[in-house]
Write a protein that binds this DNA or RNA. Structure first.
Lengths: 215, 215
DNA sequence: TCTGGTCTTATTGTCGACAATATGCAAGGT
DNA sequence: ACCTTGCATATTGTCGACAATAAGACCAGA
């Protein structure tokens, strides 16, 4: 049974706008709406059983987040990520990941290391690509989070969200290489080697981009 | 006299929401509203002679940008940037600047270099601190822009906007050091030295943070 | 068949209104 | 003096309505 405190906090803190925002974000992440697709305010509002006002507010927020694009009097469209933009996204993501890796190597403790080892083990055991993909996302997010820089985490998440709009080429290429890189990162972190941790994080992201594009 | 085409495009592309968003952003940048201050929707809407709807949409956007913070049923507040957050902002900014410096060193041409030299000269000649501050902001923004990575530019601007919410300690400390660093960056860019350009950009931002905090 | 114009419809941008919530004040009791 | 209770006010969250714009259907004339 649900704890009352959660529903209390829900009612206290969440607005329709926020819920709609999260729902649209979920649809984007789940691939239920594609880049270039148009969002109909009325359709969304009836589907979620709210009026257009919170829908519009949510849309403005996601527009600012770079996930939607507005054409006045014509509607809002899910942003398309070109190959060039994807390259830029990954370039920045590599840089942010390097920062996170360096920060994490400086402050990591036994507890953090144990958690990361568990996550990497789960990735080693992951059967299908979809599961691997989700666990991998969670691992990277957690590493940035453990780096301790909240601003960096915010930026990183924004990048990841935008990357979801990119329809990659291949999905399943090079899982084994990815796994090896994870272990190499763990080793650097365990050794507290700041330079190595940063560099391996960067290279892991860059390699991930090459694997996704099939280059 | 204003060119008609501009007003045409204005009417075609701009919505009230967008204008309100820009105006609130301007107020924040100009320091007309301070961190922690509360924004009254009705006051804003009457001042700008629009209804509350576009004001609320603009607020949601700036909330997503990390400049405002919402407390349900109580209002929106201008975000406060703690000293710790400022340190994080500058850390990320230093990293992004390094990326931009490296990218720029790779692609810079004679025209870009000439423009940057002009800007640095203007900074050398700047009389008061306020003028220096504005020109300096513009120089850095332009260098990131010339780096050619649009995503990086977006992130950088977001960081700069948030930094505006930080009430710095000292303002005028170390202008001469800042000027010297600009020239050192130009030298590295002119030489096409990727590593040096990146490193000097990073160190310039880090030094700027130390100067602002008076450490 | 094509071109151009007119009408219709769908959708957005903006507004005013109402209910729900938070805040401040005053009255009353202890 | 201090706390509680209830009321009045201000403000937000949400809604429905209307005007403006865009896009497509339809039609007439060459």
């Amino acid at each position: 049974m649900e704890r009352p405190a959660d529903t209390f906090d829900m009612l206290r803190n969440r607005t329709m706008t926020g819920l709609v925002r999260d729902e649209i974000l979920r649809m984007i992440k789940a691939g239920e709406v594609r880049g270039g697709e148009r969002l109909n305010e009325l359709a969304l509002s009836t589907a979620l059983r709210v009026s257009r006002a919170p829908v519009r507010e949510a849309i403005r927020a996601l527009e600012e987040a770079g996930l939607l694009r507005q054409e006045k009097n014509r509607g809002v469209f899910v942003r398309e990520v070109t190959l060039e933009e994807a390259a830029e996204l990954y370039e920045v993501r590599a840089g942010l990941s390097e920062m996170a890796g360096r920060a994490l190597a400086r402050r990591i403790d036994a507890g953090m290391l144990a958690e990361l080892r568990d996550r990497v083990s789960a990735l080693d055991a992951a059967a299908d690509v979809t599961a691997y993909y989700q666990l991998n996302l969670a691992l990277h997010d957690r590493m940035v989070e453990l780096g301790g820089n909240v601003i960096l985490l915010e930026m990183y998440r924004r990048l990841v969200d935008r990357t979801h709009l990119w329809r990659r080429g291949s999905f399943d290429a090079g899982l084994e290489a990815s796994r090896r890189e994870h272990h190499a990162i763990l080793d650097a972190l365990a050794a507290g080697d700041v330079d190595a941790a940063g560099m391996r994080m960067r290279e892991h992201v860059e390699a991930g981009y090459r694997r996704a594009t099939g280059q």
